[in-house]
Amino acid sequence: MDKIKKRFTLLNAVVEAMIKQPETIKYPFAAMELPEGFRGAIVFDPDKCSGCGLCVRDCPAEALHINKKSREEYTLLHYPARCAYCGQCEDSCRHGAISHSNKLVGATTHKDDWVLVFKDSKASQE
């Protein structure tokens, strides 16, 4: 009896699948839910940044770059296409200035999107 029941497991599953709704998410047309902690696009808070460069040192993909003239005068650049979205910069930052949002990063056709200027201290002073 058990053996016969086992024999029909697949048929059962198939019939069940026919009755139930399909599981496909029609992604671009239907919204896809991303969990809170998803490591998506990087957000930056310039006010908290002290320009220490820890994130740049630890970034495994070399997606962050800092041009430092002095303690106060520096530019922090981010290359989204290089970024591995690993979360190391968020981990390394002692001031909580850099973190992940749960937004997906799409492909881009604009050259401007290749480099994001996170902080330009000269521009902010002027």
Binding site: V14, A17, M18, K20, P22, E23, T24, K26
Partner: peptide, 11 residues
Amino acid sequence: KFLARFQRRVG
């Protein structure tokens, strides 16, 4: 379509 529905797809 039938095959897709058997396999939990949309088809």
